[in-house]
Amino acid sequence: MIWTLKYFSGIDQDMTVLPYLAFFSSLIAAGLGIRAATIHVRDNLDEFIGDIHKQGKWASWAAVAAGASVVLQAVDRLLT
């Protein structure tokens, strides 16, 4: 199957990769979400808009990584 890797330890068994991919993508999502939350928003209106824009970019990447994690978890559950 394409989603499995052979684990060569003398025993012929399959080790699925999907749970690990889901785990790492959820860690990436958490890191990106923390980065979005820790952006300093300044009081000046011109700088405020730029800071909100940066915060939105980081949050959107966090949402994409979280969505990828959910999809990977769902596929893993369907295949097992």
Rank of each mutant, 00 (worst) to 15 (best):
Leu32Ile: 05
Ser60Arg: 14
Gly10Val: 02
Ile28Cys: 09
Ser69Tyr: 03
Val17Asn: 05
Asp12Cys: 09
His53Asp: 10
Leu5His: 08
Ala22Asn: 07
Arg35Trp: 05
His40Gly: 11
Ser9Gly: 14
Ile39Tyr: 04
Asp43Gln: 11
Thr4Ile: 00
Ala22Trp: 07
Arg77Asn: 10
Leu27Val: 04
Thr80Gln: 11
Lys57Asp: 15
Pro19Gln: 02
Ile39Cys: 00
Ala37Gly: 14
Met1Cys: 07
Thr80Gly: 14
Met15Cys: 07
Ile39Glu: 02
Ala30Val: 09
Met15Ser: 05
Ala74Leu: 13
Lys54Ile: 00
Met15Lys: 04
Val71Pro: 03
Val71Trp: 09
Ser9Asp: 15
Ile52Gly: 00
Asn44Tyr: 10
Ser60Val: 09
Trp58Gly: 02
Ile39Val: 11
Gln55Ala: 12
Ala68Val: 15
Leu32Met: 15
Gly33Gln: 07
Gly67Cys: 03
Leu32Asn: 01
Phe48Ala: 06
Ala59Tyr: 02
Phe48Ser: 05
Ala65Ser: 13
Leu78His: 11
Arg42Ser: 12
Val17Gln: 09
Ser69Gln: 08
Ile2Glu: 14
Ser25Cys: 11
Gln55Tyr: 05
Ser26His: 03
His40Thr: 11
Ile39Lys: 07
Leu27Asp: 04
Ala29Trp: 01
Ala37Phe: 11
